[in-house]
Simulated assay, not measured.
Amino acid sequence: MKKSQLRSAARLAASQALYQMEVADKGLNDILAEFEAHWIGREIEGDAYNPAELGFFRDVVSGVVRDQVPIDRGLDETLAKGWPLRRVETLMRAILRAAYYELRSRSDVPARVAVTEYVDVAAAFFGPDECGMINAVLDALARQMRPAEFAVGR
């Protein structure tokens, strides 16, 4: 399996793990162990979960947990006035947090790749309106956080 496919699977798993942490009130170590032992690369109730780059998965999940306050603050500033992050649906919030972490802390990943990948994650769960909102928020963040990558001629 190619590295890009392993990372795509890691992004999906990270978003799901962050969601699970919030709805089931699970801690970081418990959720990492659960996903690595029972989800990633396994088949559950007829659904196959692709193998993922575990180091990347761990980095995104633990990075979001570690940096959640500034991540949430940055997302609140980017979302429309009157629509704070706490009003966003839980899985959508997890996707936005994971993407924000990657844009903020993973300079090895091009911003356009991160945005596209997380919009693709959203498309697995949401319709075009929600995906459009996620795309707009992430595009605004990417352009703000990594302006050089969006300069004319790039």
Rank of each mutant, 00 (worst) to 15 (best):
128 P>W: 10
86 R>H: 12
114 A>Y: 09
61 V>R: 03
102 E>A: 08
10 A>H: 08
114 A>L: 10
109 V>E: 15
75 L>C: 08
33 A>L: 08
7 R>V: 07
42 R>C: 08
59 D>A: 13
19 Y>R: 07
64 V>P: 03
72 D>C: 09
26 K>I: 02
126 F>M: 12
68 Q>L: 06
67 D>S: 10
22 E>R: 07
126 F>E: 15
26 K>C: 00
63 G>D: 00
65 V>T: 03
113 V>I: 15
23 V>K: 04
86 R>V: 13
80 A>H: 09
38 H>D: 13
95 I>C: 11
129 D>C: 05
66 R>M: 04
64 V>Y: 05
36 E>D: 06
105 S>V: 05
128 P>E: 14
78 T>P: 05
27 G>H: 04
107 S>C: 03
123 A>K: 06
23 V>S: 01
120 D>K: 04
33 A>T: 10
57 F>A: 08
110 P>Q: 02
91 L>K: 15
80 A>R: 11
89 E>T: 11
74 G>I: 00
87 R>L: 09
62 S>L: 00
101 Y>N: 05
36 E>Y: 05
100 Y>P: 00
29 N>M: 11
4 S>P: 00
120 D>S: 13
38 H>A: 14
128 P>T: 11
34 E>A: 13
46 G>L: 04
4 S>H: 01
100 Y>R: 15
23 V>L: 01
88 V>I: 14
57 F>S: 02
98 A>N: 13
118 Y>N: 14
67 D>K: 02
117 E>Y: 14
93 R>A: 03
97 R>C: 12
38 H>L: 14
71 I>N: 02
40 I>C: 06
108 D>Y: 06
100 Y>D: 08
14 A>W: 10
122 A>G: 15
60 V>I: 15
66 R>A: 01
116 T>F: 13
118 Y>W: 15
96 L>H: 10
29 N>G: 06
76 D>S: 03
74 G>N: 02
75 L>H: 05
72 D>M: 09
112 R>E: 15
45 E>N: 13
53 E>R: 09
46 G>H: 08
77 E>T: 01
23 V>D: 03
81 K>G: 09
58 R>Q: 03
17 A>F: 03
91 L>S: 07
75 L>P: 02
100 Y>A: 07
88 V>L: 04
102 E>H: 07
30 D>Y: 07
99 A>F: 10
67 D>N: 05
49 Y>S: 08
72 D>V: 07
94 A>E: 09
16 Q>G: 12
